[in-house]
Nucleic acid binder design. Structure first.
Length: 152
DNA sequence: GCCAACGTTGGC
DNA sequence: GCCAACGTTGGC
């Protein structure tokens, strides 16, 4: 099964928030490449949760895909910051999947460290200016991370 | 279909 | 908070 990495700004929604709620819709994705990755996700596939826009950005935990992709209701909600007036219910532009908490890493595996991993040398994650909020993770990358820093 | 303007992301 | 990078939009 495929693996993925999901970025989030912990000030908005953190791994701890996910732990408290257990399962949450991963909404607000408004980038076509990221959306296409969402649509490729299958129930049961594991994902890394990555915290961005913090002093030490990096991978903080693991979660699992709990639903197939379905239309993101926030795109139709004028009160939502994710409202997209150009999306119509009969042809939704944006999807989400539900994500369930699995566990926390023993410590943050920082972006700085990931840059040293040969497995990540070609990953978009470490590229300057990378803004993609959902990335595929291959088996070698998955195991490299968890063998360096285990789940607690 | 080009590309300047604009908005957003995310490391620093 | 700054600003480089980059995706999207829309005028032409």
């Amino acid at each position: 099964m495929a693996h993925w990495l999901l970025k989030t700004e912990p000030e908005a929604f953190s791994l701890e928030d996910l732990r408290l709620r257990q399962t949450e819709p991963w909404d607000g994705i408004r980038n076509y490449q990221a959306r296409n990755f969402l649509r490729a996700m299958q129930i049961g596939e594991e994902v890394f949760i990555y915290h961005s826009r913090v002093p030490e950005p990096g991978i903080v935990g693991v979660a699992v895909v709990a639903s197939k992709a379905r239309p993101d209701p926030t795109q139709f909600d004028p009160q939502s910051k994710y409202f997209d007036p150009r999306s119509r219910p009969e042809a939704p532009r944006w999807d989400l999947v539900d994500i369930s908490y699995v566990g926390k890493l023993a410590r943050v595996l920082t972006l700085e460290e990931l840059r040293q991993f040969p497995e990540f040398s070609t990953s978009q994650l470490i590229r300057k200016g990378n803004r993609l909020s959902i990335l595929p993770i291959d088996d070698a990358q998955w195991h490299a991370v968890l063998s360096r820093v285990p789940l607690v």
